[in-house]
Amino acid sequence: MITAEHLTKRYGEKRAVEDLSFAVRPGAVTGFLGPNGAGKSTTMRMLVGLDSPTSGRITIDGTLYRDLPDPLRHVGVVLDARAVHPGRSAYHHLLAVARTHGIPDSRVAEVLDLVGLSAVARRRAGGFSLGMSQRLGVATALLGDPQVLVLDEPVNGLDPDGVLWIRRLLAGLAREGRTVFLSSHLMSELSLIADDLVVIGQGRLLAAGTAQEFVARAGAGTVRVVSPQSADLATALQGPGVTVTSIDGATLEVHGLDARDVGRIAADHGVVLFELLSRSLTLEEAFMRITRNALEYRTPQEAAR
């Protein structure tokens, strides 16, 4: 279990992470979501002790990463793919990491096989493509066979092949009962794999919980209704907290009422309905809605939306 308690990181006046508290439950895939610059990377760097929190703490099963006698056997991290000396071969990179913990050399060959880099293991990592570097990063993370995997934007910049590979790998690791904590600024990516979500914006927690709770929290969905008397219906539906948008001459989109209410109101007013369809928010829409208020950098047009 990864637990952040009032985690705060300031760089001078700039607040990267502010009073962030959340928990990542074991054996699940948790998506760590937020717009670029929200503090996701900083949080992950604090988790593995690369950055020190200004205050608060983030622990693994109650222990600071720094205090683990065998950190690689608890947590595997892929923070950025380019954390390798370009002049060193993939094999020797892994060997140097394995040796710190006395992990046997045979494990190096195993992880190279696991990520499909055995054929290029003796080549210098400087010549690797981003996809190959990402695989090497994953191999490094898996060296200690850890129960928890932490990945920062693992699909960023990867080609479709690479994205598919990462997705399958993470799904496989999750099936083995491992905890996977991965960040992304792309909701669509996480919606395919995450059980739980932690959403932050401007360094603050915006939402945390299961994906379903998250959608529910973002607000009700919309009801789409098609009627030849759409103008009459629109008038009848008006009320506090209700917005009605006309899509075309016959179609309305209603926020703030569910399909049952819309049908009942239509019947009360003798309005004929051709179509009545309720649609819940997608994760993507829920994410947009929740992060919109927390966006730090946006153009005036975006702000006005």
Binding site: R73, L95, R99
Partner: peptide, 21 residues
Amino acid sequence: MTGARISARGLLASEWTKLWS
């Protein structure tokens, strides 16, 4: 891999590997 943990010997071996690679 049981018993694998950070040790002075391990860190020396790691730096040795880094030097020659």
